Simulated scan of single mutants.
Amino acid sequence: AAAEIMRTDGIARATTKEIAQRAGFSEATLYKHFVDKTAIFGAVLEERLPELGAALRHLAGRVGEGSVEQNLEEVVHAALLFYDEGFPMAVGLFFERRLLESHRAGVLRHGSGPRQVNVVISQYVRAEREHGRVRPDADPEAVAAVLMGACFQHAFHRHFYGEQPLADPADTARSLVKVATDGIVVRQPDDG
């Protein structure tokens, strides 16, 4: 019910009263499962798009394994889908300053938020740099910003122009990662 309301009416109109009513519960029952509306929003995104959370959780354990590009492609692929699905739900936050401030405070209480994706990616790139697979002069924060900024821009453009979803998000992820990593990844002799 929360996902449907957030997608069609936006997060600003997704009151706990409306969510509970559409779900067939009392508002009190809703609060037995969720601390606040921010927790509901987080749960909706995690339920609908668990791939991004899983990709981010696994990224740190992949330092030195596979290729840097493949590891980042998994995250970027999941982020493309996440931002595309989440954009219509989240855009309503910016219509009302009070709502944005309340949501921001809730996100900080929960230790989450949009910046966390960049933090995890930059930590991974920094660890790969220390491992010798990324050039010493690479800027981990810039790599994360370029990749996630591109994912967000894809979602923004698609929804703004009313375009169809990406035909092949994995191919788009590969292209974005290639552009971002060509100048930073240390090539081994057997990499070709």
Rank of each mutant, 00 (worst) to 15 (best):
A2S: 04
A2G: 03
I5S: 06
R7Y: 05
G10A: 09
A12S: 09
A12T: 03
T15G: 10
E18R: 15
A20S: 11
Q21H: 12
R22S: 06
G24A: 06
G24E: 07
E27M: 11
A28N: 06
A28G: 10
D36M: 06
K37G: 00
K37I: 02
I40D: 02
I40Y: 03
G42H: 05
G42N: 08
V44T: 08
L49S: 14
L49K: 13
P50E: 09
E51H: 08
E51R: 13
A55L: 12
L56C: 13
R57Q: 15
H58C: 08
H58K: 14
L59G: 12
L59M: 14
A60S: 15
R62E: 14
R62P: 02
G66M: 11
G66K: 10
E69Y: 10
Q70C: 01
L72T: 08
E73K: 12
E74K: 08
E74M: 06
H77I: 03
A78I: 03
A78C: 06
A79S: 12
L80M: 10
G86S: 13
F87H: 14
P88C: 11
V91R: 14
G92N: 13
F95N: 07
R97I: 03
R97T: 06
R98P: 00
R98I: 01
R98A: 13
L100T: 05
E101Y: 09
R104Q: 11
A105D: 14
G106V: 07
G106F: 05
V107I: 14
V107Y: 02
L108N: 03
R109D: 04
R109G: 01
G113L: 06
G113W: 07
G113N: 06
P114Q: 10
V117P: 03
V117I: 15
I121E: 05
I121P: 05
I121R: 08
I121T: 10
Y124V: 12
Y124G: 10
R126F: 13
E128P: 04
E128I: 07
R129E: 02
H131Y: 07
G132V: 06
R133I: 00
R135T: 07
R135F: 00
P136D: 11
A138W: 04
P140G: 01
E141D: 11
A142L: 14
V146Q: 02
L147M: 08
A150P: 00
C151A: 13
F152W: 05
F152E: 03
A155N: 05
F156Y: 12
F156D: 01
H157Y: 09
H159A: 04
H159P: 02
F160D: 04
P165M: 04
A167P: 00
A167C: 00
A167L: 07
D168T: 01
P169M: 02
P169S: 01
D171A: 14
T172W: 00
T172K: 06
T172G: 00
T172N: 01
R174L: 01
L176M: 15
V177S: 04
V179N: 08
A180M: 12
T181H: 10
D182Y: 07
G183V: 14
I184D: 08
V186E: 12
R187Q: 15
R187N: 13
Q188I: 01
D190M: 10
D191P: 10
